[in-house]
Design a protein around this nucleic acid. Sequence first.
DNA 1: TCGGTTGCTGAGATCGGTTGCAATAACACT
DNA 2: AGTGTTATTGCAACCGATCTCAGCAACCGA
Lengths: 331, 331
Amino acid sequence: MPDLSIDVVAKAAGVHRSTVSRAFSRPEAVKSETREHILRVAEGLGYTMSPLAQALRRKTSTFIPLIVPDITNPFFAELAKAMTQAADDRGYQLLLCVTNGDPAKTDGYFTAMQAMYAPFGIVAPSTKVDSEAMKRFAFGHKVVVIDRVEGDASVPTVTVDSRQGITIALDHLRGLGHTSIGYVSGIAGTHTAQDRMDAYLQLTALSGGTPIVLDSGSDLDAGTRGAEHFLQMDNPPTAIIAANDMVAFAVISALGQRGVRVPEDVSVIGFDGLALGARFNPPLTTVRQPIADMGDIAIELAEKQNIDGSVDHIVLEPQLLVRGSTSGPRK
Amino acid sequence: MPDLSIDVVAKAAGVHRSTVSRAFSRPEAVKSETREHILRVAEGLGYTMSPLAQALRRKTSTFIPLIVPDITNPFFAELAKAMTQAADDRGYQLLLCVTNGDPAKTDGYFTAMQAMYAPFGIVAPSTKVDSEAMKRFAFGHKVVVIDRVEGDASVPTVTVDSRQGITIALDHLRGLGHTSIGYVSGIAGTHTAQDRMDAYLQLTALSGGTPIVLDSGSDLDAGTRGAEHFLQMDNPPTAIIAANDMVAFAVISALGQRGVRVPEDVSVIGFDGLALGARFNPPLTTVRQPIADMGDIAIELAEKQNIDGSVDHIVLEPQLLVRGSTSGPRK
DNA sequence: TCGGTTGCTGAGATCGGTTGCAATAACACT
DNA sequence: AGTGTTATTGCAACCGATCTCAGCAACCGA
């Protein structure tokens, strides 16, 4: 590859490099014959424009960072997959940035992306703390958050309605005949985790029931602890709502190891709608988040903000996904 | 941010930009006082060099693409996690590229990365076909493959010893008393899938046994089909080796839905060692691949090749990870 | 004191594009 | 034919670094 630059193409096509440039990035500004000729020549040479050089000059690129705390978590993996597609469809290239929850790394990615002239970025929930770093980043660039942001309505967000999700779960379980429904909370200090828990608390209280929080911890082992708590109860609930699918997996696994069967002995419902849930044992009933939609919308919001400066907060509706981990309560 | 360029810093520090450049990228070429002064000034201004501009001029960047077919598959997610870390440790920035198995996309990523002056790339197993696209890419750049590459010993690879992995699985099962051990194959036409299957076939034959292939299909539903096959047999095996953890999950799930319990009715062992397996029901016994090591080594190989042109083929040893999905055969 | 090193810094071309501005061509109209 | 547009294309500066080459000062030995 004798370094295919724009000048090479220009020479080969017998025009000036600015014309070649226009042929690619502003087609209407070049006589169509000329443009077609140039494109043909370029094609023949196997030439593509350097995104680097473009970004440098234009001061804006098509790289859009997706910042997630842990790609190993299937939720983020599915989000990443959806967003990759969404980004691709709109001519962007998604750059996955994994922080492992390290705020320093988050910061590093922010500035790196700033330097890459990313037109905007997408941040998925890790901790609430983000908002500070975000402020700095958002100074020059735009961010949209897949979660809520505390005290900063200036950043667009897309979330799913936690309260409605819990409502759906509760209704499903009640419809099956359950009256005693426990709850195991989710990971870290994210808003979504908090919201779901609050919703559970309020909704059960509202309907005259007594909330049964099996574990309100905030790490990955909440599921296991919740299961243990369940086992120690004299009068355990007949159904359990897990704050998310991963926790549900852990609950079922831990329960299974103690000989408690799902859904025969206790029903368990998750929250997320991971594809993986279909392959679980038993297949997990869950409240499905429209992950793919979230990806699309996140990008739309970002673009919209870039254009008219609008800051929207979209709230999506979750859906019930009935599989095998729930059934009527044991008689 | 009034566009912090190297010239701004230069002016502020009262030196020429080339000196600033050197202060950052070739410290020993600048008088230490000068350098410290420059660094201090830069620090104060909050200046960082533009990776874009650097890459453009140097014709080499620190972006290293990791090309995977599907990030939703936990194996690739874990690999990505490990490699992100490994890359980071060495001053690179991993760029995750998800192809969804689409060769066109793979190709697109290759040329994009070429344009980004990536010093090398890492490709994780998707299909064998890759080798062609790779040739083109490898022309200007280096690639290391996490799998084997057919008929092209010129690209470094890191793999784990499939034969040994299957041996370990077989030994574990036999040690538990199993004599009739079935096999369910893995995804797509990757070498690893092929190797594991071959190893199973050879090793069982070698020890005088009869191979029982429950499904040799090549898609994600192999697990389900394997389970169905199992159910239809008059004399089903007492243990099953799944080509990888995901398949094992599917097998157990499908079996569970038909009332077959693991490990009470049949033992199942996976291959991969996914963290997720620990949260499965039951926790999955599996042959663990040293994923983190693979990441480290892949990058090492790439760097080594860049330096002395050596092309190594590293083969790692898998380990047995006993959890709850295997036990002695039913009497 | 003078030629030869050595150490450090400045100049300016260059990487691969983009873009405002000027120049030229082509076409319309009086 | 003369003048006013309008469509195309060339020119050259610029984006933010890197790097070779040259200049200059201090230092060495004879």
